[in-house]
Simulated scan of single mutants.
Amino acid sequence: MSVSSQSRIVSRLRAAGCVFAEDEARLLIDAASTQADLAAMVEQRVVGLPLEQVLGWAEFCGLRIAVEPGVFVPRRRTEFLVHQAAALAGRGAVILDLCCGTGAVATALGAIVTGAELHAADLEPAAVACARRNLTAAGGQVYEGDLYAPLPAELHGRVDVLAVNAPYVPTDAIGLMPPEARLHEPQVALDGGTDGLDIQRRVAAAATRWLAPGGHLLIETSERQAPLTAEAFTRNGLTARVASSAELDATVVIGAVETR
């Protein structure tokens, strides 16, 4: 491609508000197989489709995670959830990724934890299909349904690490999100209810039925919401601590089954 053609693409992306227009242009050019494909991809990005949905993948924990249109795009901050979970997962750990979206968390943990047994679940059919693309190679199982409802009974009391990136944006704040998120990702993957914690509370309420002795529940949340997330843990029989990363602007509440 000529320098002038690439410059035109950069200009279009910049005019559309893409902060890293030069980087995005290079990624789109590399991904396109024909000039027609490139033109279509640039147009999708200009009208606001998330870059990862246009490319068909997102970089996450050093991996390329398949991303389909209409599926929640994994955020870099969620890598902190993965690192915290990996530190608690021994060889052969049974790992469950709830509200899995693309299955990025389970996929990344499978690449880190030797011999991990991977399970994931999501309510959205498109997310489930996408997660299966990502997890099949690692031998993972993906289930479609509401939280724990679709899980097989044999997982009861066997989960060593339950990692959750449930929606935690308060309903009234959805309209303040960037357009590429609120218009192109499913609302069910964003909306956490009045205070953003509806799904987190439901996860915590049933976690001990699924966790193995010594198992852990980890939920991504915000710094502001973390005390209420931790309260939901303790109310349901889990000890709770808060971990955070200033670099990634990430907060995770970590719970363990209380021992008596």
Rank of each mutant, 00 (worst) to 15 (best):
A116E: 04
E117A: 15
E117L: 15
E117Y: 12
L118S: 12
L118R: 10
A121H: 09
A121F: 11
D122F: 13
E124W: 14
E124N: 12
A126L: 09
V128R: 02
C130D: 00
R132N: 02
R133V: 02
R133Y: 07
N134M: 05
L135N: 02
T136Y: 04
T136A: 11
A138W: 03
A138V: 00
A138K: 03
G140Y: 01
Q141V: 00
Y143G: 01
D146H: 13
D146C: 07
D146E: 09
L147D: 08
P150E: 05
P150L: 07
P150Y: 08
L151D: 07
P152V: 00
P152D: 05
A153L: 10
A153R: 14
E154V: 06
E154K: 13
E154Q: 13
L155N: 11
H156N: 06
G157V: 00
R158M: 07
V159L: 12
D160Q: 14
D160E: 14
L162Q: 08
L162F: 07
L162G: 06
A163H: 05
A163G: 01
A163R: 03
V164R: 04
V164E: 03
N165W: 12
N165Y: 07
A166M: 12
P167A: 09
Y168S: 05
V169R: 04
P170I: 10
P170N: 09
D172V: 14
A173G: 00
A173V: 08
I174A: 10
G175R: 14
G175K: 09
L176N: 05
L176W: 01
L176I: 00
M177K: 09
M177L: 15
P178E: 13
P179I: 13
P179H: 15
P179Q: 14
P179L: 15
A181R: 11
A181T: 06
R182K: 15
R182H: 12
L183F: 12
L183P: 00
E185V: 01
P186F: 14
P186G: 08
Q187F: 06
V188H: 10
A189T: 00
A189R: 03
L190A: 05
L190C: 03
D191E: 07
G192S: 06
G193L: 12
G193N: 11
T194E: 12
T194M: 06
T194C: 08
T194R: 08
D195P: 08
G196I: 12
D198L: 13
D198G: 04
D198F: 11
I199P: 07
I199R: 10
I199L: 13
R201P: 08
R202T: 04
A204Y: 05
A204N: 04
A205W: 11
A206C: 04
T208R: 15
R209F: 10
R209D: 14
R209I: 00
W210V: 02
L211K: 03
L211F: 06
A212N: 05
A212Y: 07
H216S: 15
L217S: 04
L217N: 04
L218W: 06
L218S: 04
I219W: 06
I219H: 05
E220I: 05
E220P: 08
T221G: 03
T221Q: 01
T221A: 03
T221C: 06
S222I: 03
E223Y: 10
R224I: 09
Q225A: 15
P227W: 09
P227K: 05
L228Y: 14
L228G: 10
L228N: 13
L228W: 15
T229Y: 09
T229F: 07
T229K: 04
